[in-house]
Design a protein around this nucleic acid. Structure first.
Ligand SMILES: [Mn+2]
Ligand SMILES: [Mn+2]
Ligand SMILES: [Zn+2]
Ligand SMILES: [Zn+2]
Lengths: 138, 138
DNA sequence: AAAATCAATGCAATGGAAGTGCAATTACTG
DNA sequence: CAGTAATTGCACTTCCATTGCATTGATTTT
């Protein structure tokens, strides 16, 4: 089991207090978060720093971006061993219309999607919307 | 075959010159369009009018909104007989990474997606990204 | 037909999120 | 410890979406 410090170093990211805090925040959240969520959690820090930290994490495949259709970009930690870099880590995302939370369903891979002749599929974004387990009350 | 006027009236939308023009524009375009696209096509008209016209069309299930991941909302005419209102008209959308165009693949229905116990699926957004037929050169 | 009513349009302004330039600060290197 | 490079904070900008309000235009009522 590697520490967060070790993880960051292994990805060639300098360890800073801010980065450790944000990484920890992301691990504790079980859902995808917006930049505003992070802002609210770290009111002392500057928005830009938080923004750039997340962008750094994204470049280094520590988090992946999620477009759940709300119009606001969300981020979630990548699973260990995920292959974000080859854009083939195609798990689906679930957005709850009730609580507005979005979760990664990493177990649920996206099925092969057929496209018409002449079209070349490189990447797929699949978001299921509905009621999450917490809100459906079971 | 009903005229555009008849279609609008059947949906309880007042027929105006602007609405006829925008509807016609949408039928001529074979791809999903942004508000800016419409703006450029109607430079004499005010952006707000165009915006509200499209919103009206959307409410009345004449167009549907498409989130193709570019961050800019696009719109396309609904097929006749589509069931946007019950959110079960689940065709997929294709976004070309080369020409940046997005098309409805209305023939390609979205397969049934399994979600974990406790989750209730109400709607699915599926966007395939890659190279379109025009750009793949075949 | 004129008055009254209601919807559509145009203009101006706002809000929210994303992104950038630059200076100040902090961390690393020798 | 000095020099260098990366990180952080502040201010500013851009872009798209959205709203308030006055004006114009169309429809209905008398
Ligand atoms: Mn995910
Ligand atoms: Mn479509
Ligand atoms: Zn929920
Ligand atoms: Zn193309």
């Amino acid at each position: 089991m590697q520490t967060i410090e070790e993880l960051l170093e292994s990805k060639n990211i300098r360890v800073t207090a801010m980065r450790l805090l944000i990484y920890k925040f992301l691990t504790e959240k079980q859902i995808a978060v917006t930049l505003s969520d992070i802002e609210n959690a770290f009111e002392k820090a500057d928005r830009t720093t938080l923004y750039r930290t997340v962008k750094t994490f994204e470049e280094k495949d520590i988090v992946h971006q999620i477009d759940d259709g709300t119009g606001i970009t969300k981020y979630a930690l990548c699973e260990k061993g995920c292959n974000c870099e080859i854009e083939t880590d195609l798990h689906l995302h679930f957005h709850c219309n009730n609580c507005n939370e979005t979760v990664c369903l990493t177990e649920h891979k996206i099925p092969q999607i057929k496209v018409p002749d002449g079209f070349v599929s490189e990447n797929v974004n699949l978001v299921v919307k509905g009621i999450c387990d917490k809100c459906s009350g079971q």
